[in-house]
Lab assay of single mutants.
Amino acid sequence: MTEYKLVVVGAGGVGKSALTIQLIQNHFVDEYDPTIEDSYRKQVVIDGETCLLDILDTAGQEEYSAMRDQYMRTGEGFLCVFAINNTKSFEDIHHYREQIKRVKDSEDVPMVLVGNKCDLPSRTVDTKQAQDLARSYGIPFIETSAKTRQGVDDAFYTLVREIRKHKEKMSKDGKKKKKKSKTKCVIM
């Protein structure tokens, strides 16, 4: 069974824990209790493949930012979460993405942009803004509501699919490099 290491990042209060708990335990946590770091595991079937999701729910508070490099190193894919009623959390996505790329030393890291709290009427981040940002990053965008469960499975499952595509691409690139290195030079 394939294991996928997913990391949920975003500013404090955007609903990272609520999304994760909704996926794992099928219930909505409405009281806000700032996370330092929590880890969850769940076995699911995605596109006919049974897999184990190892999900790291991270601290959004700035005082825990020193811990970010460590979990970013171990993560295979990242859910970059903002709240649709919090423009600052949307603007912060850029910083999370840049930090992930720096730590992973790669421009090509599996990510999904997630606009959470889409059940709320007080939207300050337009869907088109988020779609445009995701398009500019070359990553999928999904709106979710941890409260109603809308888009929750889709967000995590899409990230797994992005990781699969990335692994497939990397193995193809690896095979191309191996083929090239088999060419021999004969000096007579």
Rank of each mutant, 00 (worst) to 15 (best):
V125W: 10
V125R: 14
D126A: 08
D126Y: 09
D126N: 08
D126K: 04
D126I: 05
T127C: 12
T127G: 12
T127A: 11
K128H: 10
K128Q: 12
K128D: 12
K128F: 08
A130T: 07
A130C: 11
A130L: 14
A130W: 15
A130V: 14
A130S: 06
A130K: 02
A130R: 03
Q131N: 07
Q131S: 10
Q131A: 13
Q131F: 08
Q131R: 13
D132G: 05
D132E: 14
D132T: 06
D132W: 02
D132Y: 02
D132C: 03
L133Y: 14
L133D: 04
L133P: 03
L133N: 05
L133T: 09
A134V: 02
A134F: 10
R135S: 11
R135V: 10
R135Y: 05
S136G: 06
S136P: 04
S136D: 11
S136T: 03
Y137A: 09
Y137K: 06
I139P: 03
I139K: 01
I139L: 11
I139V: 07
F141H: 02
I142F: 10
E143G: 05
S145W: 05
S145F: 05
S145Y: 03
A146I: 00
K147E: 13
Q150R: 08
G151L: 03
G151K: 13
G151H: 04
V152M: 06
V152F: 12
V152R: 05
V152D: 05
V152C: 09
D153R: 11
D153F: 09
D154C: 05
D154A: 10
D154R: 08
D154I: 05
A155H: 01
A155K: 00
F156C: 03
F156I: 13
Y157A: 13
Y157K: 15
Y157W: 10
Y157R: 14
T158R: 05
T158A: 13
T158L: 04
L159S: 00
L159D: 00
L159E: 00
V160G: 01
V160F: 07
V160E: 01
V160Y: 04
E162N: 03
E162Q: 10
E162H: 03
E162S: 05
E162F: 01
E162T: 03
I163W: 01
R164C: 02
R164N: 11
K165N: 11
K165R: 09
K165C: 02
K165P: 00
H166W: 04
K167N: 12
K167F: 02
K167Y: 02
K167S: 07
K167V: 02
E168D: 08
K169F: 10
K172E: 15
K172R: 05
D173S: 02
D173L: 07
K175L: 15
K175E: 15
K177W: 02
K178E: 14
K178S: 14
K178V: 08
K182S: 08
T183G: 11
K184A: 01
K184L: 00
C185W: 01
V186G: 15
I187R: 14
I187K: 15
M188F: 03
M188R: 15
M188L: 02
